[in-house]
Amino acid sequence: MNEFYIIILGLIAVLGVISVYIKKSPFDKLIGLAIMMGGVIPLIVLKGYLDVAILVAIIMPLTTIFILQATGRNTDES
């Protein structure tokens, strides 16, 4: 059971990292970050540290919103 979880979540996290790196727009990068955290938070849950997982899940969007404050609105038309 754990093997399945770890393979899937590891793949998701690594794909997230790759997508952060190859995408150019900051918005796409933030989405990649969200993917990566989607892989990482279940790993924390699997270890049984649910309170940590809750806190990480709450603070993660805050970090994103902080970063969004500096990106400004989208400028490139694509």
Binding site: I58, I59, L62, I65
Partner: peptide, 24 residues
């Protein structure tokens, strides 16, 4: 340098999330 702008969630989310985080 950029003109600041507001998004909707900043009207509602901060109070609730801050309350959760401060209590925790």
């Amino acid at each position: 340098v950029k003109e600041p702008f507001r998004i909707e969630v900043l009207d509602t989310a901060p109070a609730i999330i801050a309350a959760i985080l401060v209590i925790y």
